[in-house]
């Protein structure tokens, strides 16, 4: 006899909350890229202002999950679900913080001489964004295959980070007046790379959720 469980509603609710948080994080990331590429300070300010809402979301989800553990004592797939959520939310929150960091550097860059054209950084940013989006998709669909694909893409992002740094280095060597802006842009590259790392961590948890296997540190 199959039983309708209250638990399933809780799980759906937590999933919905996590997706709302994920959408907000993706939005911040996208806006931070726009702020960077279009030097749009208004958007940058907006991303910084929105970060509080994402932080609150994290706290809400945590509370909900802890309540669920206390009352329902989840097992098997339920247990892996709550464990996964508890590990994913901080990753999302950190990605949002990094988007905020990007925007802070964008604001600082507005006071520096500009360095153009940026070749690798836009690709790096977009690839990272795609990874975060696909990581969330993999979680929602319980798709371990997609999760593994995202994890493999992390190498591409790491290479782009390095390429971006080398390109910026040539600007610095060319003209010391570029150094300050180039360093800020190097930071930004690193932030996007860290966002992609967040997506990788999320995907490792998706594999755990689906298969019960911890693949963390296996693919180093």
């Amino acid at each position: 006899m199959h039983i309708q469980r209250h638990f399933d509603r809780d799980i759906e609710e937590i999933k919905a909350m996590l997706l709302r948080m994920g959408a907000m994080v993706e939005e911040s990331m996208q806006q931070s890229i726009r702020a960077l590429l279009e030097s749009d300070l208004a958007i940058a300010e907006q991303v910084i202002a929105n970060d509080d809402r994402i932080d609150q979301m994290e706290v809400q989800i945590d509370q909900h999950v802890i309540e669920l553990i206390a009352k329902m004592q989840p097992a098997a797939g339920d247990l892996r679900f709550v464990a996964t959520v508890m590990k994913i939310t901080p990753e999302l929150e950190r990605i949002a913080d990094l988007a905020q960091d990007v925007c802070e550097r964008v604001i600082e860059l507005s006071r520096e001489p500009t360095i153009k054209p940026l070749v690798y950084l836009p690709r790096l940013a977009e690839d990272s964004q795609t990874m975060v989006r696909e990581a969330l998709d993999a979680f929602v669909r319980g798709d371990a295959e997609l999760a593994r694909k995202v994890i493999r893409n992390d190498d591409v992002v790491d290479r782009l980070t390095e390429d971006s740094f080398r390109a910026l280095l040539t600007y610095m060597l060319e003209n010391p007046r570029n150094i300050s802006a180039a360093i800020r842009l190097t930071f930004i590259g690193k932030y996007f790379e860290r966002m992609a790392d967040g997506a990788t961590n999320i995907c490792e948890m998706v594999v755990y959720l689906v298969e019960g296997r911890m693949i963390k540190h296996e693919h180093a």
């Binding site: 199959h2 039983i3 469980r5 638990f7 989840p74 797939g77 247990l79 892996r80």
Partner: peptide, 15 residues
């Protein structure tokens, strides 16, 4: 309790 192989076990331990 963490990763049962059988669907029936999963359904039982998760209520």
């Amino acid at each position: 309790f963490m990763n049962p192989k059988e669907k029936m076990t999963e359904d039982y331990v998760t209520g």
